[in-house]
Design a protein around this nucleic acid. Structure first.
Lengths: 258, 258
DNA sequence: TGAGCCAAGTTGGCCAGCCAACTTGGCTGC
DNA sequence: GCAGCCAAGTTGGCTGGCCAACTTGGCTCA
């Protein structure tokens, strides 16, 4: 399955996204040279037939993605070519795998319903006594295991997940059909030792290091919809971030608890 | 040393940064409740005596930091309290440590000058035959080793680094005095096994897992000023990121090379 | 030749206004 | 009581304009 991804920017209706998508493509294809300069904002505005404000909105996206610099007094400079963008590739293992041309797989190991503990109530903002749904899934790329995923869902979401067939590849896609939207996420990345389950599922030794990503996802209203902990075999994945003085989105912090 | 950090937002002269800083403080102090709603943009504009556009610019910062949601038709909702922001805390081990109230330390293990290899020329965009300066430093928090830092500098920067006393704590601060600015960085995070040097310096066993951050930093003109590889002892640090459909800044990618 | 000034070009920032898309709560009518 | 409509409120998006801060390259003048 080739899965040609439609450009999410161009799909959206707003002008500045179209301009941004077009510029991103031009940059990636090398139209401005490697460390070349972009046309002036005014020139781009005239070229696209939009106002300078709209061009600036588009350029702000590219700056946040690390594609161009920007400083007062001189034209913007191309920093580098496009890396994988698209928010969904970060949230969904399935989307990510497909965007690389790999075949994602998933096997549900267990799904239980039980009362939420204190940490889970805190993360998912639930009242005491509320139940949560807990899943354990093994994720594969082209058949080889790469990741163990432990996810805690609030009832509203968990009920839908429990209805899904155990061999369904993507969870986020059917959930979106039911009106569960994933729009914001907080990620924490560190190293952890494999426990007995991890070792059995991933085929590594107990205690061997895994790259861990903890993730709390919320919907547009700010309601938590998922609290997940993914453990990757080393060498299968890395996380990459761009940040700049103009707009940062990453922070390094001390590890204080689990 | 207590090192009371001045608020970088408020220090900057622009109105929207002041508004953002004020709102950030109000959110963190709980003025709007936990999952409370913010005042409307128009109300904030009137309150601060600025235009709605300026308020929107401020709110865009908070949205990018994951402090508030935003969707059309309804007021913004508070997502969570402020985590450590400030771009410099990410770039500079020293700033980061001080912001946590820890005492950062550093010991230069080696500094050599030699011709750049192919990978280094590529990363630092240097001509063949150019020399680079390579440093190996052990970083400590309150005396205990936490990280080994290997940095490759282009000549312009390396010459300045070579002049610094070997026990200087911060590199970025004196470099800034000489007009070397760090404004953009690409980070890649994964797991790696400790080599002999790592083990000796950090006091761990050879082959034991370390959290690795590779970082390429550029100045405002887009010129690379640093290519660094930091290796942290597990349990001393974690990386956290927020992203959203509105503005993402992180991408997960397959590991293909070193 | 070289240092310094200067003007043109460019981005950062701010304002005022307008309309569209969407959410929410209340009201109407069955 | 309940479903559906509707209007008010709110954010998203876009325009046009203005000035300030800064960079750059060329020109002037010693």
């Amino acid at each position: 399955m080739t899965h040609v991804a439609p450009d999410p920017d161009r799909a959206a209706g707003s002008l500045y996204r179209k301009v941004a998508a077009d510029l991103r493509e031009a940059i990636t294809s090398g139209s401005f040279g490697d460390a070349g300069r972009l046309p002036a904002e005014g020139a781009l505005a005239e070229q696209y037939g939009v106002s300078r404000g709209t061009v600036r909105q588009a350029l702000a996206m590219l700056r946040a993605d690390g594609l161009v610099t920007s400083r007062r007094g001189t034209r913007r400079v191309v920093l580098g070519s496009a890396r994988v963008q698209s928010f969904s590739e970060l949230l969904s293992f399935t989307h990510w795998a497909r965007s690389m041309g790999e075949e994602p797989g998933g096997r549900l190991e267990s799904l239980i319903r039980r009362p939420a503990d204190a940490a889970e109530r805190e993360q998912l903002r639930l009242e005491p006594g509320t139940d949560v749904y807990v899943t354990l899934r093994l994720r594969t790329l082209s058949g080889t295991p790469v990741m163990v995923e432990r996810t805690v869902y609030p009832p509203r979401v968990g009920e839908l997940v429990a209805e899904l067939p155990p061999d369904v590849v993507s969870h986020t896609e059917p959930l979106r059909e039911h009106g569960i939207l994933f729009t914001d996420a907080d990620h924490t990345i560190d190293v952890v030792a494999a426990n007995a389950d991890d070792a059995r599922l991933l085929g590594c030794r107990r205690g061997s290091p895994l790259l861990r990503e903890k993730r709390r996802t919320t919907d547009p209203t700010g309601t938590p919809v998922e609290w997940s902990q993914d453990r990757y075999l080393p060498g299968t994945v890395a996380f990459s971030i761009h940040n700049s003085l103009a707009s940062s989105a990453l922070s390094r912090h001390a590890r204080d608890s689990d």
